[in-house]
Structures are given as structure tokens and as C-alpha cells.
Design a protein around this nucleic acid. Structure first.
Length: 431
RNA sequence: GUGGUCGUAGCUCAGCGGUAGAGCCCCGGAUUGUGAUUCCGGAUGUCGCGGGUUCGAAUCCCGUCGUCCACCCCA
């Protein structure tokens, strides 16, 4: 049998330079916004005790774990999300910090799912959390950061909307309609599917709770049912000038079991209303994971790299902004040294070293090549100048690649010469 | 987990029962130290893998692995 060529595992990506650059654009934007808003970066291990995820994440997630036994017989899991790890370390270290904690992490997560558009088995998540503040001001601050992030990518009003809801409103609803406390998760599951499942099965399921589709829809449609927290959040965000980005939507309850209050999702306003980020309040998770040792209210959200990248690339103005960044941050070469006479290669090597040490990006061909070819290499390196080291060394020729103009100089003053030359514009193009 | 789609050169794909093709890319060359265009020349594939049908399979059938897409769920 033929040896099959190795390839990456299903749902896993190779980041060739262009992909890596795109990823860095996302990371840098996330980091910049988070720092600007006063969040500190932290990091947790990507491999954790499986129990961490079985304890409170709930639902589908536990069926999608990259889970295995290590050589020491431990039951371990590649993290499917970072909130559980965060709750763990916060429970352990929170005394060292004044409240509220505003923390963020950019990390890779793993879920054993079937890959498709906007989803792989591995993805990066921008995770932002505020811990130790139970009031709506924290939720508003967090949503503000979500909005700032979208704006930083170049999205504008009309491109996206943050749909905000509150599980508390549904808990009140459940109490009023006599729904037992232990069947509330099931009830919320039905609400979560309101927009996707067909009305007949919905009606059947709701009938089990003595409810009708109309009564539920009526509850969602009535703004008066918004919680007081929602109103406070809306006022807060309005004061920040973000009212245009926020909308009440009680049909949002979110899948994860640990949410306890305000929940929200950032939606793409054009394309089928995909959620590009989501989050909410999880006031009991820290206590649960620390077995009650630490009790901290918390609110957080996550944005994945797949979905936000798709949205950026599908939106003309955000795609252009990213291209500009990629151009600006591409590998650059200020000066490409052309070795026109191989016997002068030692001098060229010395020159390259001097230039580099002076902070000038310099490159040269590693093997002998014809001058014409070296100029092609210079073009491809997108260098601004080609510095020709030839038989006449220490006399040097500097060619401005864009204008094809040429000037002369001397090796002894090359660094100063090039430094000064790099400060100046090239002048009119001589074609 | 369910359903569909597609796997042929590095890339995009054509060929759909009779000895593997095109374009792009790449490499070399066109008066010995200058980039473009053009021209000339060249390389490369176990036709995803395994079985079956057939005188003969890239082509038909089955399986398998992988891709992409939708559902489920979610970032």
C-alpha cells in the first residue's frame, strides 16, 4: 500500500504567510481595542482537566470535546472555550486584584464538529470578561467593547447590530406561568429555537408547558417586558453614543447553560443575520467551579476568528481596510543588495550587516545569480532601493527601483547615505 | 450526528470506456553588470486510496478517506 501523504487533520488550518498575516490583523485589532478599553491580557492552558467542562458548560458542548487520556492516566480535554479556565484561575487569584477585573484572552479552542463555512475544529477566540461587578454598568461596558471592536474593523452603523436580551425576563415569565424550576433549561431551549424550528413542533412543545406560540411571541414583541437591567444598559450605551447599534430582542437566550442574566449577540445585519459574537452574564459559574470557595458575579463575551473574518472579507469597506493593513505590515525590504561581482560578496555581506544593525531592512541573494535576475528579486522583495556592489567597490551605485534613477556613493558612508536617502521622497518618476 | 457536492500537474480546470491535456505559475535561454513586454525551450502527475465490472477504467459500480456546502449546534 502506498504511503499516504500527510495532510492537516480535518477542520485544522495551516497558516501560510498570508493566512498568518490575516490572523495577526485580527489579533492586533482585538488587542488594541481591549487595551484601549482598560482590559488586561491573560492566558490559560489549552489542555485542561475534562471535569472542568463537564461540570457546568452543559448541552451539546460536552459531546464535542477533543478528549483523551494522557500517559499519566488523566482524563484531559483540549479546551472548547476559555470561560471555564478563566473562572478557575479567577477563583484562585482574585484576591490579588482590585475589583472589577477586566481581563481578555486570545486563544485557540477546539471542538469536534463537522467543518463547514465559518467553522472548523479549531478556531481562535477573543474572550473578554468583567468579573466582580454585578450591575448593568458592567454589561454595558462589555457591550461597548464589542461595539468598539466592530468599529475598529471598519464596520459602521447598518453593518451590524447588538441584540440584547435578559434571561431574567424569561425566568419571571416562567414563574408567572407555573413552569417548574428544573424544566426551565428545556423551556429556554425552545425559546432559543423560536426562529429556526417549524411552528407546528414549537406549538407542540410549548403545549407541554401550557403555553401557546402566540403568547410567547407576544411576550417577545412587547418592549415593556424588557428587564430593568436592559433599560439601564440601553441608557448607558445611549450616553456613549451607541444607541444605533443596540436593539432589544427577547428571543435571544443563548445555548450555553451557565448564563444567568443579560445575554447578547452581535449580528451581521445583511447576511442572514449570523451571530459574529455572543456573550452574557454568568454570575454563578465561578462559585460552581470553585465549589463555593469564591463567589464573583461575571459577564463576558467571545468573538471567533472564522466568522469575523468571513464578515470582514464579505464587506467591501472592511475588506479594504484589512488589505491596507496587510500591505503596511507585509515583510518589507528597504534596500536589496545586488552582488554584481561575486568576488565582492564579503563586502556585500558586511554592508548588509551594517545596514540591518542601523535599523534598515536589507536583503541580498544567497547564491550567485545574474544581475538581471537579482534585480527581479529586488522587485519582488518590494524593496525601495537596489544597492549594487560590484568590481568598482568601494564605490557603490544606488538604484531607485520605482523611478529607475541611479546615484553613486561610497561604502564608508553607506549607512549614513542610505539612512538619509530613506528619509527623502523619491521625487518625480523618471520612466 | 444527518444530507448533498466534489477529489486529474504547484494553482484553476478540461477530458467521462481505448497509450494523460490546457492556461497560469515555476525553471532555462534570446551580444559576458540592470528590472517590462515579447519570443524560444523545459520540468512536473502512482487521474485521492482500495476493491469490482471490462479485452481495456481518469472515465462505469461499491467501499473508504478527504474537500466544500447545508442541517444540528455554535465562535
Amino acid at each position: 500500500m502506498a504511503e499516504p501523504a500527510f495532510q492537516s487533520l480535518p477542520g485544522f488550518r495551516d497558516f501560510i504567510p498570508r493566512e498568518c498575516a490575516v490572523r495577526n490583523y485580527l489579533f492586533e485589532t482585538w488587542r488594541t481595542v481591549a487595551r484601549r478599553c482598560g482590559y488586561s491580557e491573560y492566558e490559560t492552558p489549552i489542555l485542561e482537566d475534562t471535569g472542568l467542562y463537564l461540570k457546568k458548560s452543559g448541552g451539546e458542548l460536552s459531546a464535542q470535546l477533543f478528549r483523551f487520556e494522557d500517559q499519566g492516566g488523566r482524563d484531559v480535554t483540549l479546551r472548547p472555550e476559555v470561560t471555564a479556565s478563566l473562572a478557575r484561575i479567577v477563583a484562585q487569584h482574585q484576591r490579588d486584584f482590585s475589583k472589577p477585573l477586566k481581563w481578555f484572552e486570545i486563544g485557540q479552542c477546539f471542538r469536534y464538529e463537522k467543518p463547514q463555512k465559518g467553522r472548523g475544529r479549531e478556531f481562535y477566540q477573543f474572550n473578554v470578561d468583567i468579573l466582580g461587578e454585578a450591575g448593568p454598568a458592567a454589561d454595558a461596558e462589555l457591550i461597548a467593547l464589542a461595539i468598539e471592536t466592530m468599529l475598529a474593523f471598519g464596520f459602521v452603523a447598518g453593518d451590524f447590530v447588538v441584540r440584547v436580551s435578559d434571561r431574567k425576563a424569561w425566568l419571571d415569565f416562567a414563574v408567572r406561568h407555573g413552569i417548574a424550576e428544573d424544566s426551565i433549561p428545556e423551556f429556554l431551549g425552545i425559546i432559543d429555537k423560536l426562529e429556526r424550528e417549524n411552528p407546528a413542533t414549537l406549538a407542540t412543545k410549548l403545549d407541554g408547558f401550557g403555553l401557546t406560540l402566540d403568547s410567547v411571541r407576544g411576550f417577545i414583541a412587547n418592549p415593556a417586558n424588557a428587564s430593568s437591567a436592559y433599560q439601564a444598559i440601553l441608557d448607558d450605551l445611549t450616553a456613549r453614543g451607541f444607541a444605533a447599534f443596540v436593539a432589544l430582542d427577547l428571543s435571544i437566550v443563548r445555548g450555553l447553560a451557565y448564563y444567568t442574566g443579560v445575554v447578547f449577540e452581535v449580528f451581521d445585519a445583511k447576511k442572514s443575520m449570523r451571530a459574529v459574537a455572543g456573550g452574557g452574564r454568568y454570575d454563578t459559574l465561578v462559585a460552581t467551579l470553585s465549589n463555593g470557595a469564591t463567589d464573583l458575579p461575571a459577564t463576558g463575551f467571545a468573538m471567533g476568528d472564522y466568522v469575523i473574518r468571513n464578515l470582514i472579507e464579505e464587506t467591501t469597506h472592511t475588506a479594504m481596510q484589512m488589505e491596507v493593513w496587510l500591505q503596511r505590515n507585509a515583510a518589507t525590504c528597504d534596500v536589496f543588495v545586488v552582488v554584481a561581482d561575486e568576488s565582492q560578496r564579503p563586502a556585500a555581506l558586511r554592508l548588509v550587516t551594517d545596514l540591518r544593525r542601523a535599523g534598515i531592512a536589507a536583503d541580498l541573494p544567497l547564491t550567485p545569480a545574474k544581475v538581471a535576475k537579482q534585480f527581479q528579486s529586488a522587485e519582488r522583495s518590494r524593496a525601495r532601493f537596489a544597492l549594487v556592489v560590484g568590481a568598482e567597490y568601494p564605490a557603490l551605485k544606488l538604484k531607485i527601483l520605482a523611478s529607475r534613477a541611479e546615484e553613486s556613493g561610497h561604502a564608508d558612508s553607506a549607512v549614513a547615505w542610505l539612512s538619509e536617502r530613506l528619509q527623502q521622497p523619491d521625487g518625480p518618476l523618471i520612466a
